[in-house]
Design a protein around this nucleic acid. Structure first.
Lengths: 115, 115
DNA sequence: GCCGTTGTTTGACAGTCGACGTACTACGGT
DNA sequence: ACCGTAGTACGTCGACTGTCAAACAACGGC
């Protein structure tokens, strides 16, 4: 009754680089909570656990948002002990859509500053 | 009986430049039909009537999509006789979010070519 | 072995979205 | 005055979204 994934390294499905769709990425980034997560990940540059983010939503909603980000190809998630680490898929996104992520991040920063 | 707008020039509400929200723009661009419209508008550079677009949806759905694009600040719409002309708000978008529109368009082109 | 921390799952719920058809309005020509 | 073309408004429908609470699972340490 292992669910299909071997215990000890719960598997997380990610789209391959070629499967990443622009529409899905834009949709993932169009939510304020998710955009904020992406900004923090970009600012950090490395990997951050879900628990690092102090989001104005419950745990289950947080799980949901991270799943949308992962399934759209925006973040990569891996388990490290009990924590789930999140990293931006900068390499893949920059290869597929050069400049897109940077201009979205710049736009978000600008809008936040003007706020 | 006039609905509030003087006859002869039906008014269409547009967000002012400062009211345009990044999240709304990304959401507007995350739909395949709308992204396609935006690409055609960008390729043309000028104004095109709704009837120019041969979209795989009905007229009423087309109206809906153009409204989303207008209300998010992506396109500007004006009536010209019985036609409703649509133009990209390049000036406003470029001023608010430099490079964003271009990288989205480049990404869309790239994805379409690879498709 | 037990507990706390971390995250998942499930089910519910209200709201939005994209799509449709039908009925309607607005304008330009004939 | 009439018709045709262009687009709108309204109501509906099913699917998806964002949110929550409550119960559960996995791992690390004590």
């Amino acid at each position: 009754m292992t669910t299909a994934a071997p215990a000890g390294s719960r598997a997380l499905p990610h789209p391959a680089r070629t499967e990443i769709r622009l529409e899905s990425v834009l949709h993932a980034l169009s939510d304020p909570v998710r955009l904020r997560v992406v900004r923090e990940l970009a600012a950090d540059g490395g990997e951050l656990p879900c628990s690092h983010f102090d989001l104005p939503v419950t745990k289950s909603t947080t799980t949901h948002h991270f799943r949308v980000l992962r399934e759209s190809g925006v973040v990569r998630q891996v388990y490290r002990g009990t924590a789930k680490m999140n990293g931006l898929r900068r390499d893949d996104l920059d290869a597929l859509f050069p400049g897109l992520l940077d201009s979205v991040l710049a736009a978000a920063r600008r809008q936040a500053d003007a706020g």
